[in-house]
Structure formats: structure tokens, C-alpha cells
Amino acid sequence: MTPPRQPLHATVAAVRIDDAWRGVLIQGPSGAGKSDLALRLMQVGWRLVGDDWVDVFACAGALYAAAPATIAGRMEVRGLGVVSRPFLPSTRIALSLHLTHEPVERMPEAAQDVIDGVAVPRLVLDARPASAPLVVAAAINRAMRAAGRRGDSAL
């Protein structure tokens, strides 16, 4: 039986860590830079899962995301339009990223989102600085290490 899926206004990009793909769920209002950040991540080896809308679902205590079939492999690039990109059909989510244009705390407390009953580490980030992809990579690696210390097989 296929787990129920819920649509979510987000972009998902995934990176290969320890022989498994792990994704970041990039959320924010229109114009916040979701697709732009995903493009910059893809420039350094990440893979697109879905752009603008994804289906999320919980399975065996983990959160997953997949692109709806109608937009799989497509991404909106501001100023260019819709382009085709290589993509992964789905990935396990390791980080929930909230984009903002407001100042971000320098040393925030650890936070998490609960999505479809699954707790996922949360990061609030301004995606405009050139360092944003590096911050995302560091955050997903930290989330994976923390999950390993807890013995959390969900990540």
C-alpha cells in the first residue's frame, strides 16, 4: 500500500551522503529564492527532486518527498522559464529549510519541524548570500551526524 501523500509548496534538492541520497525541503514564500538555491546546490553536485511543489509522505518513521509526475524533472528558472533538469524520483528528507529575507540569528537554538508526524531538523536561512549552499551542506551533514549519534535510522 502506498502511503498517503500531501502536496507542499516547496523545492527539494538531494545530496549523496554515505551512499544514500538525503534531501533538504526548501520552503518559503514565492520569490524567496527556493529555485535559485536549488540551482546553486545542483551546481556543486546536488540533484533536483522537485521544484515549487512536492508530495511529502511518512514511511517507517522517516519523511520522504517526491515530485508530482506532471512536473518531475522540470524547474522554473526566473528570467528563463521552465527548464528540464536531471532529477531523483524521491528522497528521504534530512533537513527542513525555511528561507527568509529577515536577519537570521547567528547562534540559534536547535529547532525542528514535525511534518506528517516526523520530526525533521529545521534551519532558517537567507538564501541570498553566496555562502548559502555551503551553510545548507554543513547543516545537512550536522543533521546526519546528530541522527547517527541518536541511532536514528530515519535519516
Rank of each mutant, 00 (worst) to 15 (best):
V77R: 02
V77H: 03
R78N: 07
R78Y: 10
R78L: 03
G79H: 03
G79M: 07
G79K: 02
L80W: 08
L80I: 15
L80K: 01
L80M: 11
G81N: 02
V82S: 00
V82I: 15
V83S: 02
V83M: 13
S84H: 09
S84E: 15
R85E: 04
R85C: 09
P86L: 05
P86F: 05
P86C: 05
P86E: 10
F87E: 00
F87T: 02
L88E: 04
P89K: 00
P89C: 04
P89M: 02
S90E: 14
S90Y: 08
S90T: 05
T91S: 12
R92C: 15
R92P: 06
R92E: 11
I93T: 06
I93A: 09
A94V: 14
A94P: 12
A94T: 12
S96N: 13
S96D: 15
L99D: 05
L99E: 10
L99H: 08
H101S: 14
E102H: 12
P103K: 05
V104A: 05
E105Y: 06
E105L: 15
R106I: 10
R106W: 12
P108L: 09
P108Q: 08
A110F: 14
A110K: 07
A110W: 10
Q112E: 15
D113M: 03
D113F: 01
V114G: 00
V114E: 14
I115R: 00
I115L: 13
V118Q: 06
V118A: 05
V118W: 08
A119E: 10
A119W: 09
A119S: 15
